[in-house]
Nucleic acid binder design. Sequence first.
DNA 1: TAAATAGAGGATTAATTTGTCCTTTATTAA
DNA 2: TTAATAAAGGACAAATTAATCCTCTATTTA
Lengths: 139, 139
Amino acid sequence: MFSRACEYAIKIMIYIAGNEQEGRRTGVKEISDAINSPEAFSAKILQQLVKNGLLSSYKGPTGGFELSPNKKIKLVDIVKAIDGNKLMESCVLGLENCSGENPCPVHFKFIEIRDQLNETLLSTEIRDPELITKGIGLT
Amino acid sequence: MFSRACEYAIKIMIYIAGNEQEGRRTGVKEISDAINSPEAFSAKILQQLVKNGLLSSYKGPTGGFELSPNKKIKLVDIVKAIDGNKLMESCVLGLENCSGENPCPVHFKFIEIRDQLNETLLSTEIRDPELITKGIGLT
DNA sequence: TAAATAGAGGATTAATTTGTCCTTTATTAA
DNA sequence: TTAATAAAGGACAAATTAATCCTCTATTTA
């Protein structure tokens, strides 16, 4: 469904959001340990998240990453930043000209799934306490 | 969502189902022309579909592929044959131990989407006339 | 039974994704 | 103001996925 990089990105953002609650910045090493991802690869993903305005980064001692302040960050923002919007917008069969007026054979079979996926990605906020406190962690 | 190979596989199956209605077997060349896919790559996918019991193949002149007779072929069979059941069963964050009792942070956000996807894949039959007659074709 | 047809399948190449290594740049605090 | 810290980023390597090439085998029909 999501690329590996995007899976990492979502975990990264949830983990940083958890630290934000405790008023802490988060470094790459801490992240890759916490979510069990390769450190250098995670660093690249972090760069993309910064470039897309979802994170702020700070160099030097006491440096690290923070969620962009004063911004509602939603799952859809993360997925778009890393995987683009193929999943949200493209035809499941990869057909360029598929649409409601011009549907591919399975278009209407998947339209509800697509809609619900978009609804979930749009409505899930990364600072949602449910997201941060529930669950088995990120490993 | 689906791999490229799986997108081809679904188109292939729908196209062959269309020819079945007209009582015709379908060759690789005809398929790759019809769905606009690389011929040799399509041939590999066809082999997998045969190995998984979804198609029967025949060599020589008048040869080609047919849907396995007397078998309800569902979308889920095709996806499983080509992409395995990662999409249907694995955690969206790729976590090995994620489950209802042991949910990852987004588990319950995606559970409905997962269920609906499974429902759609299970209930969509490849011989469904709606699938074959509707739509813009497979290109 | 020979020639043409068509799938099977091994080997290889290309492209993309995933992951690593190493140097540079900015920042902080002693 | 220098030493330590931490992100930025370029270059490269490995793994996976997508695609191609070529030969072999089976089947049909003339």
